[in-house]
Design a protein around this nucleic acid. Structure first.
Lengths: 355, 355
DNA sequence: TTGTAGGCGTTATCAG
DNA sequence: CTGATAACGCCTACAA
């Protein structure tokens, strides 16, 4: 239609030097025909893929989907496409999805494994596909990894509560097997030790909200109530919140809560939730930088990157009111949880100027 | 490695009839080599794709990601893969992402458009790719559509509040341009008319939580306070919640709130949120049924499917307390918002037996 | 700068 | 039931 040979069309569409006039004609023809290069054929012939595959444990968890979204944005600017698969939190499914992903012959792969020992590593190695392990960096990986500083995350959460005078802490986690969780606990234990406190109790609530609430309620009704709770995943945060609500425990009046991950609903909740925020955008950035380097042939030794988290202080944490003599200021009575309380460093959800 | 010809390997791997012994040898070889058929080559030669493309307005909105997850699950059982792209809430991006998706030559496509008039329809038609429009079914589509009964959704939300004695309603929406939103409003207006009420005010809060809260606060401080609020998207729900919290308005004591979409955090919030739940799983099911039929050559007239929503009653709505004489029972004083109040038909977040 | 020829890994076809 | 062979749409190399 443009009156040129297929080779010229290819040259235009892949951005090679072509006479301006021909290029113009080709582009017009392409857009009027709605023509786009067939990726399958292109990839088959050129051997280059411009596709990155991503394997995540679940697409129901907003932490993972927000990372997927960030990675997709990043890839788009580099003209790559993303193929995602969900392992449905199951190692068998993870394996079969990995196979499926590999059949795309992607240029590279980003994996958030289901478990610490990522069994798929050998498949990836056999296929010669460069990959980066993200977030759940438990076992010994022979690939680049990008994760968050989980120890410091736990440490900061605990220190925040301890600074507020809390002595009885409770840790709520979805599951304790993941090394991510273990490291967060380690940080908490360190902070406690530094403050002369015992290792706090940990309760595992699983991945179902109903049973999470049940388990927490059982625990709370058979143990002395903690004054500070640290939830180690966004799901655990939800579970803790729901349980406390059912017991009509006021936050932060009776119990202070530090959540994990930072989502819009935590800002909108009453009270808004103090939380550890993971640097999703930075993780996406870094993981793609690493992966792209490997795709481009970088063969330097693997690097294990670790990103810092940040503690976003909102209204769900306040000075301990239980009157423990070691807790500093004994309370001004049982203060109603206040959305404008003094411990809130973030401006709520608005810019706050006119509030 | 299996000592057979490539054709036989292909026959085994695509599940055709082959002598058991050969099949066995091929499978063993494949798994020991980690071999999987190259999709690009397979698709090129066979013309069949086993890939479905999905274009969504955003991957940051949990409503869309939950649909993506449901579709992915559905496709997996039928041995298809999913390629997703996000339009980043922008029509220009939508167009370019659509092009990119089309270059995969997918067997079919599922589209949730950014706007009511889906400009990409012509591209899809030109490519001859079967597609189904999902959720945002505004304009006149020449393709199958799957959506929710938005009018009834609005009607039920409003009727629920009206039944509780509320007369002053406020509608909170992200944007009023989408026909989804208009239909939900229409339902609300219908319910109001049936109850002899005026058309309620509508406030548009945009897509940024900060400014949403600002706008709502401005409105609330310059108008008489409504006793019932209906939020028409999950984001609007968040905005309404955040605003009310900042004004220290108690829910449902002073204002009842009906939210949209149903997520875990709504169950865990204090109070838990009454909400319109969209049948995500059923939508995914239906959209794939339709699309698969079209892929398989069904050329019957297009169908516009409409699924019912359900109202999940929780603790954020209660009988109107403002003492309007028309509102039925005048209040038993200003009841503290209670998580176990009589209007709550759902059992909170747990099975509740021991609560 | 442009055209021609060949082949990427797979599957459809057809002969054996 | 299996093997040889051609062709899918494109890109690269090389020739013009």
């Amino acid at each position: 239609m443009a009156g040129v040979s297929p080779a010229t069309v290819s040259n235009v569409l892949t951005g090679r030097r072509v006479r301006a006039e021909s290029a113009q004609r080709v582009k017009e023809a392409a857009s009027s025909l709605g023509y786009a290069v067939d990726r399958a054929a292109s990839q088959l012939r050129s051997g280059r893929a411009r596709v990155v595959a991503m394997l995540v444990p679940s697409l129901e968890n907003p932490f993972f989907t927000s990372i997927v979204a960030a990675v997709e944005r990043r890839l788009r600017t580099d003209d790559h496409d993303l193929v995602v698969a969900s392992a449905a939190d199951d190692v068998a499914t993870e394996h079969s999805r990995l196979q499926a992903l590999l059949s795309w012959r992607p240029a590279g792969m980003i994996v958030i494994p289901c478990t610490d020992d990522f069994a798929g590593a050998s498949l990836l190695a056999a296929a010669g596909t460069p990959y980066v392990v993200l977030d759940r960096v438990g076992g010994a990986h022979s690939a680049d990894t990008v994760a968050v500083d989980n120890v410091t995350a736990g440490l900061e959460a605990a220190r925040h509560l301890i600074d507020l005078g809390h002595r009885r802490l409770l840790i709520v986690a979805s599951a304790r097997t993941l090394s991510n969780i273990k490291l967060r606990c380690k940080g908490i234990v360190e902070a406690c030790a530094a403050a002369g406190l015992e290792e706090p109790a940990l309760i595992e609530v699983g991945f179902d909200l109903e049973s999470a609430v049940d388990r927490l309620q059982t625990w709370l009704s058979t143990h002395e109530r903690p004054s500070g709770i640290i939830a180690l995943t966004n799901f655990a945060t939800l579970g803790a919140l729901a349980s406390l609500a059912r017991f009509s425990v006021s936050i932060p009046g009776e119990v202070s809560l530090v959540g994990f991950d930072d989502y819009a609903w935590m800002r909108a909740a009453a009270p808004s939730i103090t939380a550890i925020r993971q640097p999703v955008e930075a993780m996406a950035e870094l993981v793609w930088d690493r992966l792209r380097a490997r795709i481009d042939g970088d063969s330097s030794p693997v690097v294990q990157a670790m990103l810092p988290v940040s503690l976003v202080i909102r209204a769900s944490t306040a000075r301990c009111q239980t009157g423990d003599p070691a807790a500093g200021l004994p309370g001004q009575g049982l203060r109603r949880p206040s959305r404008t309380g003094g411990r809130q460093r973030e401006q709520g959800t608005g810019r706050g100027a006119k509030a």
